[in-house]
Every structure is written in structure tokens, then in C-alpha cells.
Design a protein around this nucleic acid. Structure first.
Lengths: 215, 215
DNA sequence: TGTTTGCCGAGACTGTTAGTCTTGTCAAGC
DNA sequence: GCTTGACAAGACTAACAGTCTCGGCAAACA
């Protein structure tokens, strides 16, 4: 997700003919400071986790990281990009559902894991804040869309395996089932009117399995 | 939902004893202009409907309504309150689910109606904008919470009827079922990655009915 | 060693918007 | 006619995203 521009990658290109575009030349000057990069991500994550719902500002991130604002914008194109990068930085990027051989237990494990991961203290507040910011920031919204699409895709695969095994009806709408899972998750997560606990995960999994079973 | 302060309502209270709070006295001076109130709501609704995702500003509402900004704040406490009021102004406030005697058809009708209502051109854009604003505005978020709670309550009643009739298992989690409906709805409505059509409503209703049937 | 290049921190600056405050006007009642 | 309080207009404040500028410093190279 980091937007590091690699100037050196093109350094071995042939020199441009005279009179055309300026010659590609090797990188010179001071290099980007990886420590600043990390400090920004760490600061963003900490502020996100500590946020009580109020938006996290770029000024605060830069100040906390001991970094100039311009440095933030040198590495990321917008505030949203920093926030989402901070959030996904340490999370497994390749989501992989469990594969126990039974749809019921796979699904329940997947849902329970999702619920649990979002409840972890540092994550919950950060995720909520990012979701809130995404509502206003089209750039972040796009990043969130691909983020959620990846998760949904993993769940869909899990469901497809169940379908192949004949545990789900052939005409079952896998996308709708996935959206029921993530719909409940986000709805409860953002409104906070009801729990997202292991018991809920179990009920949800069994309701979905029964509701879309073959036969 | 209008936050009209009714100064006159307390006018017939007994005069305060000397030395305590100032005496309640009848209203004097120019009265509030009901036409301005309506003009603001109409302007807000129109701007919400026309909004292409960019936030609707108070300045724009006031200018469109031909009204001073202060007048807006005289009637409503915050921008969010105006927006939600504009949105709910014409909607049925008392949500009532259908009652055909069969859970399956009741549920399907309820979901289909919900999906359909949200798709109406003027509503969809307005609802999306209000949801986006609610993400940043705690006051509006609170109003939205009670707004959604009312809808969820109507759905829950519908489900409770089905439960009494024995169409749902006694141990079925009615709140979870309701949250699946509204979860899918908001998830798809806000992300826009999949349709909210009559077919989806039917599949969702039947999946929920089968997944939580008695026996 | 000295020069060039480009990142660095610091912070001033611009533009936008929510919400408040001010001013002069106008209508309702006494 | 006087008092009261709503009214339109718009100046003002405070936040915040994102840009720009500046002097400083480190990496490569001559």
C-alpha cells in the first residue's frame, strides 16, 4: 500500500536521444528516510487507536511522528491513504478462510475470527475511525472498497467449497450470504447496538447454513 | 423531529413567587416565520437529492431557501438535524410492517418495500448523504440511531408475529435476523457493489425464513 | 573537499465549512 | 409609538486538508 516511488528502477534505461525527452539519470541527492515512514505509520496507528471518535488530523500525525507535514504527503497521497495503510500495515493482507472440510464449522470459525479481530482494543477504534473518514473521503472510500472486497472474496471461496461439497443448494446466492455476514458485522460494529460475540457468530453461521442448505 | 421551541406553551404557568426565577410572561415580539421553516426543509431536501456525494453545506441551504444562516440555527441545533429532518419530514414516521398472516410473505414484502423505497431517485442520494454526514456528526449519528431503531423495531414485531404463529423456532434470535436484513441493506446501499432488487429481497427473505424455521 | 541534488522538519499559507456574533430592519402586541 | 424578538445579510472564529517555502543536511560524484 505504501506509495514509495522508485526512481532508481528506471536508472538503467538507455539515455534519451538528443533533442527528445530529458535523459533518465540515476538517483542523486538524499534518500528517503525509512525511519520517518515507520514513525508516521506508528503515530497514525496510535492516534487511531486512541481516538475517541474525533477525526485524526494530519497535523497531529506529523507532530506525533516528529515529522514535517510535507513528509507525510511525500509518502502518501492523502490522509485517508495514511490511515488505511496504518490499519492494514500489520494485518494479514492475504485473508485465508479455514478449511476443516465442513461448511458449518468453517463458516462459524471465519465469522468468529472476523468478529474477534475487530474487537481487539487497538483495532476497534482504529477501524471505526477509518470507516468514518471513508464516508467523507472518496479516495479512502475506494481503498476501503478494495479492502472489503478482498475479505468478501475469501468468504465467498469458503462458501464455494461448501457448495461443491453439496452442503449448500446449487442455486444459493453466495454473494448474498457473504453480504449477510459482513452486513451484520458492519451494521453492528458501527451502530454498536448489539454484541458481536462468539455466540452471535455461531447463531449466524447456523442460520445461514440451514437457510441455504441443499434439498 | 422539528426542534421548534414552544415559548407559548408555558405561558399559562402560575407566576413565579417574588424573589425566585423571573416570571413566565406571554410571548411578545415578531413570531417565527413558518414559511422560512418550510423553505429551509425544502431547500435541504432538494440539495440532498441533487448532491453528487459532496456534502451539503448550511450556507447553500440558507442561500437556496433565501434565508439567513441564523434562521436555520434558530430552528435546528445543527446541520445534521436539518438534514435528517428534511429526509424524514415526508416519510411515514410510524413504520408498520405488512400483516398477511404468513411470515414468508410478510418478510419478503417488508424487505422489498425497504429496498425499493431507498432506491427512489430523490431518496437514495439524500439517504446516502445523510449517512455520510452521520459518520462525522455525533449529533446526527444519535438521530440516525433512533431513526434506524424505529425501523428495526417494526421488523422485529413482524418477526415476533411469525414466532408466535410457530413459523420461527422459539430460540430464534429475532434481533440477529433483523440485523441481517438491515445489515445487508446498508452494506449494499453504501458500498454499492451489488443490487438491492426484488429478487434479492425474495432470496433474503426465504433464506432467513428457512434458516430460522421451527423444527 | 566541494558541489549538486533532493529529502528533511518547521511552519506559514490557502480554501472550505460549521457555527457564532453583529447590525439594521420589520412585524406583533401593548 | 414603544418594546420585543424574529428576520436577512454577512462578518467573524476555529478547524482542518492540502500546498508552498525555507534553511538544513545527507548522499553521490567530481
Amino acid at each position: 500500500m505504501s506509495e514509495v516511488q522508485d526512481t532508481e528502477a528506471a536508472a538503467d534505461a538507455a539515455p534519451a536521444a538528443a533533442g527528445t525527452a530529458p535523459a533518465v539519470r540515476p538517483h542523486t541527492g538524499r534518500r528517503r528516510n525509512e525511519a520517518a515512514h515507520r514513525a508516521i505509520l506508528d503515530a497514525a496507528l496510535r492516534l487511531l487507536a486512541e481516538s475517541d471518535g474525533t477525526p485524526v488530523t494530519i497535523d497531529a500525525i506529523a507532530r506525533t511522528a516528529g515529522v514535517g507535514k510535507q513528509t507525510v504527503y511525500r509518502w502518501w497521497p492523502s490522509k485517508g491513504a495514511v490511515l488505511l495503510d496504518a490499519l492494514t500495515d500489520r494485518a494479514d493482507q492475504d485473508v485465508h478462510g479455514p478449511d476443516t472440510g465442513s461448511l458449518g464449522s468453517d463458516l462459524q470459525a471465519f465469522i468468529a475470527t472476523t468478529f474477534e479481530a475487530a474487537q481487539r482494543d487497538t483495532t476497534a477504534s482504529a477501524l471505526r475511525t477509518v470507516a468514518r473518514e471513508a464516508a467523507r473521503d472518496p479516495h479512502l472510500a475506494e481503498l476501503m472498497r478494495s479492502f472489503t472486497a478482498a475479505r468478501r472474496g475469501a468468504l465467498r471461496e469458503l462458501l464455494a467449497r461448501g457448495c461443491e461439497r453439496g452442503e449448500l443448494a446449487g442455486e444459493a446466492d453466495l454473494d448474498l450470504i457473504a453480504d449477510q455476514v459482513y452486513g451484520v458485522f458492519w451494521y453492528r460494529f458501527l451502530l454498536g447496538h448489539a454484541a458481536l460475540d462468539a455466540d452471535t457468530a455461531e447463531r449466524l453461521a447456523s442460520s445461514l447454513t440451514r437457510g441455504n442448505a441443499a434439498g
